[in-house]
């Protein structure tokens, strides 16, 4: 194998303890969580199940930390050929595609209830007769402020949707500012990437700090909006389909922003440590793609959850 041909050796790692122990951690996490949920439903003590989930999650986090650290070490030791790096690129791209499809399920649910099932329940169209038999008084509307059976699902008082197209309204409309913040963060992240490629370390770190800060501000505003929704608008998880779609769409997005902010914060630390080279910074790029993806999802949310 000593030939110096154009073919670089593809690095196949030695045995690794990570996958097996990560599986144990993942299993304990979900098994514990399942028990927590079932214990709450059964009014039982959640102490044991909470510990199971926490221990599992600790194992999983610890293993993933070590796993990523190892891959970073391998790359810095020069073990990764250009071909291997392409595998990482393909891997991250298709992972993001799978995330797109995850959100597609929730967007699909939103489109379905808004354009088909809620109007049917209100008596519209060929399938409207069921609604007339079930809840004859029910009026289709969006935001759905009177549920078909308000005794089972307490109705929200008010929606969060855009109610006016005047500039004055948008100036005080929190989701609009969140959109501005997230789009700005994508731009600042791009500036950071440009600075990284230009080997301008100072700029890189400045723009990364700004990006992470914008992510945290977004999350803070989102938390404020949730408090408002619960406290003043009566929009809760159990307030019918408007709250269900609102919280799961924005909640999973917020969860992804949290993860993305964490990833960018790690990248900031790695920038400070000087891990990246202008031609070799896949970790940075992967986190950046993820961030841009989260941004695009938000634009979809803003259009379909708030403006529509």
């Amino acid at each position: 194998m000593a030939s110096e041909s154009s073919h670089e050796t593809y690095y196949v790692p030695e045995q690794s303890k990570f996958p097996f122990f990560a599986s144990i951690g993942l299993f304990l996490t979900v098994f514990g969580l399942g028990n927590v949920l079932n214990d709450i439903s059964a009014d039982a003590s959640v102490t044991g199940s909470t510990w199971t989930a926490l221990i599992g999650f600790t194992i999983l986090s610890f293993i993933l930390f070590q796993w990523f650290a190892t891959t970073i070490r391998e790359n810095r030791a020069g073990l990764n050929s250009a071909q291997l790096k392409r595998s990482y690129v393909w891997g991250m791209s298709w992972f993001i595609f799978s995330e797109v499809m995850f959100f597609a399920a929730f967007f699909g649910a939103l489109f379905y209830v808004r354009t088909l099932s809620v109007p049917w329940l209100g008596g519209e169209g060929a399938k409207g007769s069921a609604g007339e038999f079930l809840w004859p008084e029910f009026q289709a509307a969006w935001p759905l402020l009177v549920n078909p059976d308000p005794s089972a699902y307490p109705s929200p008082h008010e929606g969060l949707n855009v109610t006016s197209w005047s500039p004055a309204f948008f100036a005080g409309y929190l989701p609009f500012w969140n959109t501005v913040i997230l789009i700005t963060s994508s731009v600042t992240l791009h500036f950071a990437h440009v600075a990284l490629k230009a080997e301008n370390r100072k700029r890189l770190i400045q723009w990364m700090v700004v990006t992470v800060a914008l992510g945290i501000i977004f999350l803070g505003l989102q938390a404020m909006e949730y408090v408002e929704a619960y406290g003043h608008y009566g929009i809760t998880l159990d307030s019918g389909i408007y709250g269900s779609t609102f919280f799961l769409l924005t909640g999973f997005h917020g969860f992804h922003v949290t993860l993305g902010t964490f990833m960018l914060a790690v990248m900031l630390i790695r920038c400070l440590k000087g891990h990246f080279k202008p031609n070799d910074h896949f970790g940075f790029e992967a986190a950046a793609w993820y961030w841009h993806f989260v941004d695009v999802v938000w634009v979809g949310l803003f259009i379909f959850v708030y403006l529509w």
């Binding site: 209830v113 088909l116 329940l121 549920n147 078909p148 089972a152 019918g240 269900s244």
Partner: peptide, 12 residues
């Protein structure tokens, strides 16, 4: 308590 699959809460 979400209502994705329960018509009483507007789901289906």
């Amino acid at each position: 308590g979400t209502a994705f699959f329960d018509a009483a809460g507007g789901g289906d």
